[in-house]
Simulated assay, not measured.
Amino acid sequence: MATPLPAGLTAGVYEIDPSHTAASFSVRHAGIAKVRGSIAVTSGTITVGEDLESSSVTAELDAASVSTGDAGRDGHLKSADFWHADEKPTWTFTSTGIRADGDDYLISGDLTINGITKGVELETEFTGTAKDPFGNNRAGFEAKLEINRKDFGLTWNATLETGGFLVGDKVKIELDVSAIAKEA
């Protein structure tokens, strides 16, 4: 049985607007605090079908754009210890299915980081539509997921004197997406 689209969202192709879209992450540091950062979403397409099941999402992110507020840490994250940003600069997400989850949605898909692809699930909220001052029809979405960084070959760490490790394994990722409807 086909699941209807959320109220206000119409079928069509929507291009993700990088200047109004953000991807942020947080990870435990030394087991006591969180380091937060962002990475640029450079492009993507949301294809909204006549129903939820016939819809799809693709997105690309730029590993070299990482920003945590500390240039030294950002450089380390871009290095071969973590993201290999020079060799593997693009992260990708390609949906494999979308389904309703109460008032929200679950988007299953393949996430590729550091050249390694794993299946993930994004808890997603449709935040509405609007016409911007330039006449563009926009659709908004918020999504979140949690990954284990080691699943993507991000294994660098340092042992703490007091026990434990410097970098936590769980990484929380949040996305705020604004997409513009393409003219038919």
Rank of each mutant, 00 (worst) to 15 (best):
2 A>Q: 13
3 T>I: 06
6 P>H: 11
8 G>W: 06
10 T>L: 12
11 A>W: 02
11 A>D: 07
17 D>M: 01
20 H>V: 07
22 A>F: 09
23 A>K: 01
24 S>F: 02
24 S>P: 02
24 S>C: 06
25 F>G: 08
30 A>P: 00
33 A>V: 15
37 G>F: 01
37 G>E: 10
37 G>L: 05
38 S>G: 15
38 S>I: 12
41 V>L: 15
43 S>R: 13
44 G>Y: 00
44 G>N: 03
47 T>D: 10
48 V>I: 11
50 E>P: 05
50 E>W: 01
51 D>P: 02
55 S>Y: 02
56 S>K: 03
58 T>I: 00
60 E>R: 12
61 L>H: 01
65 S>C: 06
70 D>M: 08
72 G>Q: 13
75 G>Q: 10
78 K>P: 02
80 A>D: 15
81 D>N: 05
85 A>K: 03
86 D>A: 12
88 K>I: 08
94 T>Y: 01
96 T>M: 00
97 G>A: 10
99 R>S: 13
101 D>M: 03
102 G>F: 02
105 Y>P: 06
109 G>M: 04
111 L>M: 08
112 T>G: 10
115 G>Y: 06
117 T>A: 14
121 E>Q: 10
125 E>N: 04
125 E>F: 02
126 F>L: 03
133 P>E: 08
136 N>P: 03
138 R>M: 11
142 E>R: 15
155 T>L: 05
156 W>R: 12
158 A>D: 13
161 E>N: 13
162 T>D: 11
169 D>C: 07
174 E>R: 09
176 D>Q: 10
178 S>E: 14
181 A>G: 00
182 K>Q: 15
